[in-house]
Nucleic acid binder design. Structure first.
Length: 773
DNA sequence: TTAGGGTTAG
């Protein structure tokens, strides 16, 4: 009987069992050659327990048998069993492991302790120079992040084969060391060795982090020339390279030309469109993937969660969460948990995000960063700060670049300069201050906390080849009202050949708008389209309407809206409404608010704005009507609050609030100030009192506005002439603006008030933005 | 009869 042929034809577990029986019946069961083949056969068919049974039945196990059993476990992902088997080999048999044993055993190592122990054995047996063992050792050290040790093993190999080169390249690559990976790749090329599909699929992932599309394309040419494009790993790596570098067309082309596609190919296409902001096409690929018989895995779901977050589909979010729960993935995969936290946060359901976070069995630094960013981006800065504190108490979690990037905007938001500076100190200690994203957040933080000079000197230190820090510094000058300087910086950016993006133009247009630079704003808008081919988004249109409207060109603003090629959203109508408030145009304001409420009826700020317009001209029926409308829709006015940081502590004041421990002193100070202000010619402007009340009551209302409480608190809590920095969550009212001018003169203090819109610098009775607020 | 090195995510 030809057992050799029978072995070859067994492709199902039940056939293997029949063959097993046949071997027993024919008296060949104890033949070590056949029984070892049986061990391998069962393992290949995924039947580990029968593989073990066949192994146990071998009376005198030789090294072939042990190796087959160990590698059988490894091929089936049973790593602890493989290691056990290896230790049994060492302790219970007289067989010595050989260079066939170690590649499998090294793969089975669960941690570096196991790995080092086994490396010692390899060394004792003199097997370090075996190329297969060496490649496995390089892989092992890289897997646990010890790529330096991997390099030592690599350097000790006298004559390397392609396998060891490939192991080293992918080792660097998987540890985020793209440049080192490329260095090894270049050495390999110098040797003139022909690359194989493994080399190519290992090196392709470095192109994206190095932003090197040309290299990626050259490798693609090599692939075609050497017929490597039929390897599914190579094609998948090409798809990912192109997609990450923004060349979706090329990615699509590679996918279309593939003869055989696997789950990775489909996942890569879904992710490609999702990451290039085309959630609809991404979803299309997801459907086609299912039609082609592929079941989604964890990675598919990560992309789906991002798609849902992008397209704001709350209900889909719940069903994705449910699907993941039903598979139990949330319990075993930290990545998917983080993705769901991120998804809920982006959908604005921060409570659901927090709940998922709480339920995660293991949290890593990214889980914490995601939650902090979620709170910060939902406007809940103090909650974000609380989470950051909790994170600090959590053992084993060290804040990283992502943490600083998530926490700094929260400090900027509440104007906590001193605490933000602490983060700056931490960044300096860890060297993260030169990181482009941390550097940019620091620029933004200093600018938003009123330290424009510090922001500028930081800008001078960070790398500035990308648009990111430029956008931050241009926006900083913009919110401080220095439109000309913002434009000058934009000029420098062009001189340094840094390509502006859509964010640059939002910053520029809003800088022009705050400074009343109409012509320059128009010029920027044209430049964006004509020279840089950037299609204006709703944000750009909103800025233009703001620019025209703020300067009093209400007709031009309306005409601009009428000529828009896309449907105006709330930000565009909101800009027009804001302009109507400044220029007291009730009729157009009513029209703008009607359009506005059609597209967004839930933003309470717009109701307040409209109510202000009516109150300003004493149309109290209008005020009542708006109030009723807002109440009917279940909206409540956002309470106005101001904060000030004194001695490392942020104090928050609500309008009319009398619960502060130093409340009496504060109101006393305000009374003294009011008298002095009046003697200098201050006349309260009651048009900013939105309630229909008696005159004397109106004065009290103005005096207890939150920004004045914060200013008075600052005056009594700091040494004379100390500058005061106030943050207000809403817009500063016109009367407070005027009053602050007087206060800056009387107290000889510099007072900086940042409101939800811009900065106001008061010094010696003058505001840098004049009366134009 | 037994062995290494590869592609996707928050």
């Amino acid at each position: 009987m030809d057992f050799h042929l029978l072995f070859l034809s067994c492709n199902k577990s039940h056939l293997a069992k029949r063959l097993h029986a046949l071997l027993v019946v024919s008296g060949n069961a104890h033949n070590i050659f056949f029984s070892t083949r049986l061990v391998n056969l069962y393992a290949d068919l995924g039947n580990v327990s029968f593989s073990r049974l066949a192994f146990e039945q071998i009376p005198k196990k030789n090294v072939f048998a042990w190796n087959s059993m160990i590698s059988g476990y490894v091929r089936n992902g049973c790593f602890p069993e493989a290691l056990d088997c290896y230790y049994q080999l060492l302790t219970m048999s007289r067989v010595r492991p050989d260079f066939f044993t170690f590649p499998a055993v090294l793969k089975a190592c669960g941690d570096l302790v196991d790995g080092k122990k086994i490396h010692c054995w390899v060394f004792k047996l003199g097997l370090c120079l075996d190329l297969f063992v060496a490649a496995s050792l390089i892989h092992l050290y890289s897997r646990f992040g010890f790529v330096g040790d991997a390099r030592i093993v690599f350097d000790e190999i006298p004559v390397r084969d392609l396998g060891s080169w490939n192991a080293m390249i992918s080792g660097f690559c998987q540890n985020g060391k793209a440049a080192d990976a490329l260095g090894v790749f270049e050495e390999l090329r110098l040797e003139g060795v022909k690359l194989d599909s493994v080399t190519v699929s290992s090196i392709l992932p470095v192109c994206a982090p190095l932003d090197d599309l040309v290299r990626g394309m050259l490798i693609h040419v090599y692939v075609i020339k050497h017929g490597l494009e039929f390897d599914v790993f190579v094609s998948n790596a090409l798809i990912n390279m192109y997609s990450k570098l923004g060349s979706l067309g090329h990615a699509q082309q590679v996918f279309d030309q593939m003869m055989v596609r696997d789950l990775v190919s489909w996942n890569s296409m879904v992710a490609a469109y999702e990451q290039n902001d085309d959630p609809i096409t991404a979803l299309g690929f997801f459907s086609k993937m299912k039609l082609n018989g592929f079941q989604p895995d964890v990675l598919t779901l990560v992309s789906l969660a991002s798609i849902v977050a992008q397209s704001k589909g709350c209900r889909n979010g719940r069903s994705i969460h449910g699907f993941i729960m039903s598979r139990g993935w949330l319990m075993e995969d930290i990545f998917i948990g983080n993705a769901i936290v991120d998804m809920y946060a982006k959908l604005g359901s921060i409570d659901s995000a927090h709940k998922v976070f709480e339920g995660m069995p293991v949290k890593d630094v990214i889980s914490w960063n995601t939650l902090i960013t979620g709170y910060a981006q939902n406007g809940l800065a103090s909650e974000a700060l609380e989470i950051y504190c909790l994170m600090g108490q959590c053992k084993g979690i060290t804040p990283d670049q992502g943490t600083l990037v998530s926490i700094l905007p929260a400090y900027s938001h509440v104007g906590a300069l001193q605490q933000g500076m602490k983060i700056h100190g931490r960044a300096l200690k860890t060297g993260l201050h030169m990181d482009i994203f941390v550097g940019t957040c620091l620029i933004d933080m200093y600018a938003k906390c009123g330290r424009l000079d510090d922001a500028m000197s930081l800008f001078d230190q960070v790398p500035r080849q990308s648009s990111v820090p430029w956008n931050a510094i241009i926006s900083s000058y913009g919110i401080h009202g220095h439109g000309e300087k913002a434009l000058k910086l934009f000029g420098e950016m062009q001189d340094e050949r840094v390509k502006p993006d859509h964010v640059t133009f939002v910053s520029l247009l809003s800088a022009c708008s705050h400074a009343g630079l109409i012509d320059q704003g128009h010029r920027c808008f044209r430049l964006m389209l004509e020279d840089y081919g950037i299609q204006p988004s709703l944000k750009h249109y909103g800025c233009m309407v703001d620019l025209l409207g703020r300067a009093g060109h209400l007709d031009m603003a309306c005409e601009f809206i009428n000529n828009m090629p896309i449907r105006p959203d709330a930000s565009v109508w909101g800009a027009l409404l804001g302009a109507c408030r400044i220029h007291g145009n009730v009729e157009l304001g009513t029209f703008a608010s009607d359009r506005l409420f059609e597209v967004d009826s839930q933003n309470v700020g717009y109701y307040v704005l409209l109510s202000n317009i009516y109150a300003n001209v004493g149309k109290w029926e209008g005020v009542d009507k708006v109030r009723l409308l807002a109440t009917d829709r279940g909206l409540k006015k956002t309470p106005g609050w101001s904060s000030i940081e004194v001695n490392n502590k942020v104090d928050v004041f609500y309008t009319g609030n009398r619960s502060h421990p130093q409340c009496e002193e504060i109101y006393k100070e305000l009374g003294v100030l009011l008298a002095k202000m009046k003697s200098l010619g201050y006349v309260p402007d009651y048009s900013f009192v939105l309630q229909d009340v008696e005159e004397d009551e109106k004065e009290d209302i103005l005096t207890s506005h939150s920004e004045r409480l914060a200013i008075a608190f600052g005056i009594i809590s700091t040494l004379p002439k100390t500058p005061l920095r106030i943050f207000k969550n809403l817009r500063v009212c016109g009367d407070c603006h005027n009053a602050t001018k007087f206060i800056s003169k009387i107290t000889e203090r510099e007072i900086v008030v940042r409101d939800s819109n811009r900065f106001h610098h008061f010094k010696e009775g003058i505001c840098s933005c004049g009366d134009y607020w």
